[in-house]
């Protein structure tokens, strides 16, 4: 007697959607307004469609001294000008999104906010992909930094990072005042993620403008905690917890700095970086991340093939 094997699905919740980027028609200058998130299941669990296809963001910065030499050496002089770099990334590496780190703000005593504003404007001028901007990490300059980012990107529907517990007001303010969205990062813990989302909501940031970053440890350096945190956040959201029902972004930012990669045989270092990012990113999308970030340009092609193979070329699955 032939039997039927079912997939058991008992979810009730849905993941919210967040839009990044605004086209000319919408008051911005991006080539597209990308929607991330959505869906009502785990990727490939639950029998229904796997949800929206995850996107690849390429990370770059405005002060290459604070970036991995593996990348800066490969990219060449272009890294000294954020606008040039942005243009090159878009033309050559072709990610889905750009994630721009204002690493210049991390220099001690940074105060040059007018330059900062020009830098963001330049990156916007030289690129067309929806943009994620990472501001300062120092509370002392948060207020001015995020005001710059918010203003310079007005109308562009940026995704701004990064809000943390105890350091979220300026990012939230920039998002609310200038129509952007916020990355909310908590240290690998489902309850802390929820708490931060509640704080943001109370400040006035609506749910459809929050992207959860559960913090992604590099492979071998706590990645397993992040992997499970992502699964648990998604799980809680599907069970109906609206304070966790936002799309997630994952970036194992330390991947290129860890010993295994940094101290790899020089002939293999580039490949080591790519594999480290690839294994992490593939695992993150299967754990529920909607955006995965990479820093090595050569990670993009194999990662895209994997995502295409999982979600289909056109994505969406449905």
């Amino acid at each position: 007697m032939p039997m039927k094997v079912d997939i058991i699905s008992e979810w009730t919740g849905e993941i919210g959607e967040v839009t990044i980027g605004a086209t000319k028609k919408e008051g911005g200058s991006r080539c597209a307004a990308i929607v991330i998130g959505g869906g009502s299941g785990f990727p490939f669990l639950g029998g229904s469609a796997p949800g929206r296809k995850p996107l690849i963001a390429f990370e770059f910065c405005d002060d290459p001294k604070l970036w991995s030499p593996i990348v800066t050496e490969l990219e060449g002089d272009v890294v000294n000008d954020a606008g040039d770099w942005a243009a090159r990334v878009e033309e050559l590496h072709r990610p889905d999104l750009l994630r721009f780190y204002l690493t210049s703000t991390r220099r001690r005593g940074f105060q040059d906010f007018s330059q900062l504003r020009r830098t963001v404007e330049e990156v916007l001028e030289r690129s067309t992909l929806p943009l994620i901007v990472e501001g300062s990490i120092d509370p002392a300059i948060d207020s001015e930094t995020f005001l710059c980012c918010g203003e310079a990107g007005e109308g562009e529907r940026l995704l701004l990072g990064t809000a943390e517990e105890g350091r979220y007001r300026s990012v939230a303010a920039a998002a609310m005042a200038y129509g952007h969205s916020v990355i909310a990062q908590s240290p690998i813990d489902v309850n802390l993620a929820k708490q931060l989302n509640i704080l943001l909501r109370e400040t006035g940031v609506p749910h459809d403008r929050i992207v959860i970053d559960p913090y992604t440890g590099a492979l071998g350096y706590g990645f397993e905690y992040s992997y499970s945190a992502m699964e648990r956040i998604r799980f809680a959201a599907l069970k109906g917890d609206e304070d966790l029902a936002m799309p997630m972004i994952s970036s194992a930012i330390d991947s290129l700095n860890i010993k295994e990669v940094r101290e790899a045989d020089p002939g293999q270092r580039g490949e080591m970086a790519v594999k480290w990012e690839l294994y992490t990113a593939v695992s993150s999308v299967i754990a529920g991340a909607s955006v995965v970030c990479v820093r090595h340009p050569e990670t993009i092609v194999p990662l895209r093939s994997a995502i295409d193979s999982l979600w289909g070329k056109t994505g969406g699955g449905d």
């Binding site: 207020s143 005001l147 203003e151 300026s170 303010a173 920039a174 005042a177 200038y178 400040t203 006035g204």
Partner: peptide
């Protein structure tokens, strides 16, 4: 005003 609103949310 937007800037003012920013400062209010921001806490400055």
């Amino acid at each position: 005003l937007r800037k003012l609103g920013y400062s209010l949310v921001d806490g400055s």
